[in-house]
Every structure is written in C-alpha cells, then in structure tokens.
Design a protein around this nucleic acid. Structure first.
Length: 297
DNA sequence: AAAAACGACAACCGCACTCTA
DNA sequence: TTAGAGTGCGGTTGTCGTTTT
C-alpha cells in the first residue's frame, strides 16, 4: 500500500508560470510552509503538477535566491568546483548558497563552457572583462598548473578528511545553528547571512501583477493575496519578515527547501558522518576562498 | 521590415533514491 | 515488506528576447 496519487495528471498546465500563479504559490507557502507540495494544486486551485510547484519554488520563488549576472568570484568558484567535482551542480550550488543548481548549470552551459572552450583554442588573455581575465597576471601554462594544483590539493584534502582521526576537532571554525539549519562559518570569510532576501523577486512579480491588475480590472481575490505581503524592497528587514513567517511553524520543511544538502546532513546522517563532511567542507571552503583571495590581489 | 539565427534562461523529463502508508 | 509517492539531481527542451542578414 502506497501513498495516494500526487496529483491528477489530466489537465495539468505546463509552460512558463504567470505572475498570478506565482502569487498563488507564494501565498500557499507563506501559509503552509514549503513542502506538502501534493496539496498545492487542491489548496490553491493551481493547475500545476506538485513537482512543478516544488521546482518553481526552489528555483525561482524561494527567498535567498540571487538573480542577475554572476560575479567574477562566483565564476571562478564555479570553474574550480566544476573542475573538481564535475557536473555535480547541486554540490557546486552548496558553495554558492544564493544560487540554485539550475542557475549554475545554465550559466555553465551558456557562458563558462564556451569561455573555456574558447580559451583552449585561442588566447587566454582575451579582454572580455570577465572571470578569466582576472588570470591575466599569469600565463596560460601557469593558470593550468595552478588549477591542476588546486585539484590535487582538494583531492588530498578529501583523502585526509576521509582518513582523519574521528576524535579530532575543527580549529578556527564555528558551527552556527541558525534556527532550522546549520552553517559552517569561517570567521570573517563566510557571511552568516547567506540567506539573503529575494523580496525583490516577489516585489517584481507583484509589480507586474498590479500592472496587469489595473488593465483588466479583476481585483478582489488577487488584491487580497497581494496585501498578504509586506514587500518593502528598500527594507533590509523585508526578508526577515518574510522568512520569519515560515520558520516558527515549519522550519524543518523550510530548511529542506532552502538548503537541501544541509538539511540532509542535519537530519539524515550521524554526528560523526557530519563531522567528516564538515571537515571536508571547511577544507574546500578554505581552499576556495584562499584561492580567490590570492587571485583578487 | 521581415525572417532567420542566436543566446539566455525557465521549465520539463526521466532516473535513482528515500520515505511512508 | 512492499508499492508507489516524494524528492533530488542532471540532462534536455521550449520559449522569448535580441541580433544579424
């Protein structure tokens, strides 16, 4: 005996989400918390598959997602992590908490892959003004050697982490449990505010919504849903207000939707396994950030 | 001005694994 | 114990805006 079917596949809408649908979904999540995706279509009237709702939330609507162009540092991290981990986008995304794996994957496929390919066949020092131009101070051979050395370093770190004495402690790092999930914080290097606001996203769609609202004059229900959000894009507390509405009732689900890996570690693994993973994470972070610091000089 | 080509990104698909009734 | 839904993930496709011809 299994669970009941997630949703009726017939009449399920596909394709791009409209602002109206986004608002309905956000309303639901605000009320019930992320999770319970199966109940979303029935509760909201959305003609979307529960899976589609979950993806829309995790990849686009959830708070903390940074949109727009990638910074040089982010590019460098992606390039290095991709060289190290391969196409493990979720793992790479765990080092860029404000970016989704989908975003990173798309960015890699549309920008970085081409850029690296170009570099293989042409001049490394193209003045494209982006990531790789920051390597200008080194020759191509040096850069490749540096990258290879980094990969070796990380591999060594991985081996060390796996063979470390279990009783060893983690120096100079603090593990910060912020409500629903755990951060590993390297003082002064990692911000604890990895969970930044995407109030702008919501504000944007609300803006779009109110625009279309004024044109077709079908107020009431929509107006009421938009009033549920105190979307103040100029207010740094906007996110605090927004997220705090989830946390008390459904922090566990919230953590799952925001940092699945962290949540997985937090809930699914033993303390010892967590320690090992933390040590590895710390090493990798250290390696990445040290490298980035060097390159930024 | 229109059509074609291209680029960016959102969304879907399918598979593997986990969870639960 | 087991069937089947839930979830995570990587690959692929679809859509839409922009640029080129």
């Amino acid at each position: 005996m299994g669970r009941p079917p997630c949703c009726d596949k017939t009449g399920v809408k596909k394709g791009p989400w409209t602002p109206e649908e986004d608002i309905m979904l956000v309303s639901f999540v605000q009320e019930h918390g992320p999770g319970n995706w199966r109940t979303v279509p029935t509760h909201t009237g959305l003609r979307r598959c529960s899976k589609s709702c979950r993806l829309r939330w995790t990849n686009y609507l959830r708070p903390g997602i940074k949109r727009g162009s990638f910074s040089d540092q982010e590019e460098k991290m992606i390039i290095q992590l991709q060289a190290l981990l391969g196409n493990k986008w979720a793992a790479i995304a765990s080092y860029l908490p404000e970016r989704t794996d989908n975003d990173i994957k798309n960015y890699w496929n549309t920008h970085l892959k081409k850029k690296l390919k170009k570099l293989e066949t042409s001049d490394l020092y193209s003045n494209d003004g982006h990531c790789l131009s920051t390597y200008n101070s080194t020759s191509r051979g040096q850069w490749e050697r540096t990258l290879q050395a980094d990969i070796n370093t990380a591999k060594q770190a991985l081996q060390n982490a796996l063979s470390l004495d279990k009783s060893s402690t983690i120096p100079d790092y603090t593990i910060t449990d912020i409500g629903c999930y755990t951060f590993i914080k390297q003082e002064a290097k990692m911000s604890t505010t990895t969970y930044a606001s995407n109030a702008e996203n919501i504000a944007k769609l609300l803006k779009q919504w109110t625009k279309s609202e004024s044109t077709n004059n079908s107020e009431q229900s929509k107006a009421s849903s938009s009033t549920q959000y105190s979307c103040n894009t100029n207010n740094n507390n906007a996110m605090t207000e927004y997220s705090s509405s989830f946390e008390p009732s459904n922090s566990d689900q919230f953590s799952q939707a925001t940092t699945p890996e962290a949540a997985g570690k937090f809930h699914g693994e033993s303390k010892r396994e967590m320690d090992d993973e933390i040590q590895l994470s710390v090493m990798l972070e250290s390696w990445l950030f040290d490298e980035n610091d060097d390159l930024l000089i």
